[in-house]
């Protein structure tokens, strides 16, 4: 099996993904951990491009890096003790061993059940258009499409409900001339 540039790029993207994930877990500094998370998400976007799914890569960057990383970083930055050099958790070795066990088991199951490596199927040129048609096709994905919108509605209502007590009330608001 000769080494093609595609292999090299795949190796690089996997390095970003896994290396970033390792950096998130092991880094003492929370801000650096958030930056490693962004690197990991970029790696996943790269993997999507290699799988000829550019739409998913763009969605990954738009939603994960653009929105979720921002949320996580904002939360991390208002945590009081970002630089507290806590000692590493005592169970680190045990956790590492368990993670390795899970990886070996999953790898074994995937390689034997799914026949190992298979050649990638051909991706049609108008895959995004077909996805759009499938979204509103009652025999295809119409119900999950609408349920997704209801799920998003529920998520937003839940978040507002939880944050409701922290929001300033009308009586405390000074009308119009005191803004942070």
């Amino acid at each position: 099996m000769s080494l093609t540039p595609l292999h090299a790029i795949f190796a690089l993207m996997s390095l970003f993904t896994v290396g970033g994930a390792v950096g998130v877990v092991l880094n003492r500094n929370l801000i650096y951990a958030a930056m490693y998370l962004v690197l990991s998400l970029f790696g996943i976007a790269g993997l999507f491009i290699l799988l000829e799914a550019p739409f998913l890569a763009a969605v990954q960057i738009l939603v994960y890096v653009g929105a979720i990383s921002v949320l996580i970083t904002i939360t991390v930055m208002v945590t009081r003790c970002v630089f507290c050099k806590e000692p590493p958790p005592r169970q680190l070795t045990l956790v590492a061993v368990m993670a390795a066990l899970v990886m070996v088991t999953l790898g074994f199951v995937i390689m034997t059940r799914f026949g190992g490596l298979t050649p990638a199927a051909d991706v049609p040129a108008d895959s995004i258009e077909q996805l759009g048609v499938a979204f509103v096709n009652p025999q295809a994905y119409l119900v999950p499409f609408e349920v997704a919108s209801i799920l998003l509605l529920g998520a937003l209502i839940g978040a507002i409900f939880i944050a409701r007590d922290d929001l300033p009330r009308d009586e405390e608001a000074v009308g119009g001339d005191d803004h942070a």
Binding site: F55, V65, G66, A125
Partner: peptide, 26 residues
Amino acid sequence: DVSIGVLYLAAVSSLGFMSILMAGWS
């Protein structure tokens, strides 16, 4: 002329947010 041109524009614009947070924090 990528097949996702418009979404690429939106995605790359959203990368700028992290740089602002990094600047403010550091």
